[in-house]
């Protein structure tokens, strides 16, 4: 059976909020190392990959592999009841029909208990290869969100170009063109503002802004975001959750016929 108690319960709500507009039904795959999720949007353009490691929970117990087939719209309805400092506990049997979700107030004077019906979801697990990316950019997640949102007002697509001079986000739309360039930036006192660009070779790729803006719904999870690019390879956008738990998005580049 599964029993997992999360003191940073808002993490769960933020993860679900970040992915529910991209994927609707998905399996939360539980095993002794933690809870993982992998789901692709209907158009096969974006892939979500999440791992909440066992050490993010206290206690965490899962004796065998359990797949929790969850409708995220339904889970969102349950998570509405979650309050800021609540502890959340997930419980399920080995072959579960439902997921038991408990919210406890930090003062332990209120316990809310929900059973969420589960579904059978036939999802193929895809192998995501370890990739040596040509460019890796770590930057403030709010900055990335602002750039994507601002450029989306002008165009459907953005070209991301990483060179030794920096990383350039540019778009061309009906009303004109726009571009934002970021350079390496180190702030010793406010490290969360740093822009770190690691480059082995120049990269230029074009992506749909609709999807990037969607990924930015994960911004509340972390003040930093990592963007990894290689020519002709899906873009990786990563938000670290707690410790080494993560939420990753992969996005197919646009290629000219």
């Amino acid at each position: 059976m599964l029993e997992a108690r999360l003191s940073q319960s808002m993490v769960l709500k933020k993860v679900v909020d970040a992915i529910k507009d991209l994927v609707q039904d998905c399996n939360f795959d539980c095993n002794d190392s933690g809870i993982a999720l992998q789901a692709m949007d209907n158009s096969h353009v974006a892939l979500v990959s999440m791992l909440l490691k066992a050490e993010s929970f206290e206690p965490y117990r899962c004796d065998r592999n359990i797949a929790l087939g969850v409708n995220l719209v339904s889970l969102t309805k349950v998570l509405r009841a979650l309050q800021n400092d609540d502890l959340v506990t997930l419980k399920a049997d080995d072959a579960p029909d439902s997921l038991n979700i408990t919210f406890e107030s930090s003062t332990a004077d209120r316990i809310s208990e929900y059973d969420l019906k589960l579904m059978d979801i036939d999802q193929e697990h895809l192998g995501i290869p370890d990739t040596e990316y040509a460019a890796t950019v770590t930057m403030p997640s709010t900055e990335f969100k602002r750039i994507c949102t601002d450029l989306q007002a002008m165009s459907e697509s953005v070209t991301i170009e990483a060179t030794k001079d920096g990383i350039k986000f540019s778009c061309a739309g009906d009303i004109g063109n726009g571009a934002v360039t970021l350079r390496n930036y180190q702030n010793v006192e406010k490290e969360h503002l740093n822009v770190d660009i690691e480059l082995t070779e120049p990269v230029s790729l074009t992506f749909s802004l609709k999807y990037l803006v969607n990924f930015c719904k994960a911004q509340p999870l972390s003040d930093r975001v990592k963007i990894c690019l290689s020519n002709e390879v899906p873009l990786l956008v990563e938000y670290l959750i707690t410790g080494t738990s993560y939420l990753r998005f992969y996005l197919a580049p646009k290629v000219r016929d």
Partner: peptide, 14 residues
């Protein structure tokens, strides 16, 4: 026209 790589095919081949 722009063509978007199918991630399913990409990852399944990997």
């Amino acid at each position: 026209a722009d063509f978007q790589l199918d991630l399913y095919n990409y990852f399944i081949k990997s």
